[in-house]
Nucleic acid binder design. Structure first.
Lengths: 196, 196
DNA sequence: GCAGTATTCGACAGTGCGTCGAAATTTTTG
DNA sequence: CAAAAATTTCGACGCACTGTCGAATACTGC
């Protein structure tokens, strides 16, 4: 009784490549992982790799697409009104955990983006979407008088992203307590920067 | 009458390589410039290049050392007391001009740092020195009650660097007016973030 | 103009990338 | 279940760039 056609052999291979890639990019630097490494790790020859992915950064792009979606699911603060420090903390806490769980991958992506148009596009779009949602929230709060108007909402949003990224850089191997401290610092900084 | 031994032929060649490199890295991406390009641009064969520099990033390191010194010379705000918005503006204006004049080089350096230990060290040290001086200033202002103590001086300093770098990203081809606007925005942001 | 140093270069070897077409395997179909 | 069709695998090849060596050549001071 064959109900569903299970995943074909190729699907499994593709999953294996992604699996190995996630592990390798988490530990080594981007350049230190060769296509040969990925193929060998997935149990195929180097040229076999090209049946599944056109290039090395393409694998990273596939992995990052998932992470990017995870991030997007954590944006609870953007729908609030006013400073809403508790929602901001919750949003930052969720994204900080995602960041920590993917620190190596994010670092490799940043490196690889320099030489891969598709990956660069993914990251750019991902960041743009975040910044736009942040800017929209701040714009609303400027209209209702809770946020400063000394700086445009767009630039405030960019600054929030920038501050967040540097501080997240701290949590590569952070404990839960350290992670909470980083988030608290960010909440304070963002409130100071944007609200009265 | 030979007073001074002029620069030897080799010194001139080295200068030529640095010259060509500055121009090429300003226009193309880091990977798009090969050692062959640099050598040809300086009028020697590819292997001749290795007499002067061990690797491609080493050239970038030499160029960046100068830029790093230029930046260090613009730090007038760090010696002040309190918010000192005028000195802050002056410091940011100077560094913004240096940044704009070297935008391409800075971008290539960021890329190359991923694969070159010496260059990474230079940039890390350069940033660390900046952050330490900023932190020292903020620590003083926290002691005399002008700066917030809700966030440690070290983290505030990191955040300032982060905000500065993103906003400087805007001034790749900026006019003087745009540059001033970016600087004004930064002055406002830093004052909001750090002072009462 | 000669000894010693500085500079240049061609030949070689290594690494990783990506393409091609043929072979082997899996899946579908009758 | 066997033949047809598809999917998957791989070895051979060519390419671009890097880095090393030693021999040849060009400078330099005396």
């Amino acid at each position: 009784m064959r109900r569903k056609a299970g995943p074909s052999k190729g699907d499994l291979r593709e999953a294996a490549i992604l699996d190995v890639a996630r592990r390798m990019f988490a530990e080594r630097s981007y350049e230190a992982v060769t296509i040969d490494d990925l193929a060998a790790g997935a149990g195929i020859s180097r040229t076999g790799f090209y049946f599944y992915f056109p290039t090395k950064p393409a694998v990273l792009t596939a992995l990052m697409a998932r992470v990017s979606d995870d991030f997007a699911a954590s944006h609870v603060w953007f729908d609030s009104t006013g400073p809403a420090p508790d929602l901001l903390r919750e949003q930052l806490l969720m994204s900080a955990r995602i960041w920590r769980a993917n620190a190596g991958l994010l670092s490799c992506s940043a490196t690889a983006a320099a030489s891969s148009e598709p990956l660069r596009d993914l990251l750019t779009h991902s960041k743009a979407r975040y910044d736009e949602r942040a800017a929209a929230k701040i714009r609303r709060d400027q209209a209702n008088g809770t946020a400063t108007t000394a700086i445009t909402a767009e630039r405030l949003a960019e600054m929030i992203s920038a501050i967040r990224d540097t501080q997240y850089g701290r949590l590569d191997q952070a404990t839960d307590t350290e992670l909470r401290n980083v988030v608290d610092t960010l909440v304070t900084a963002i409130q100071r920067l944007v609200y009265h």
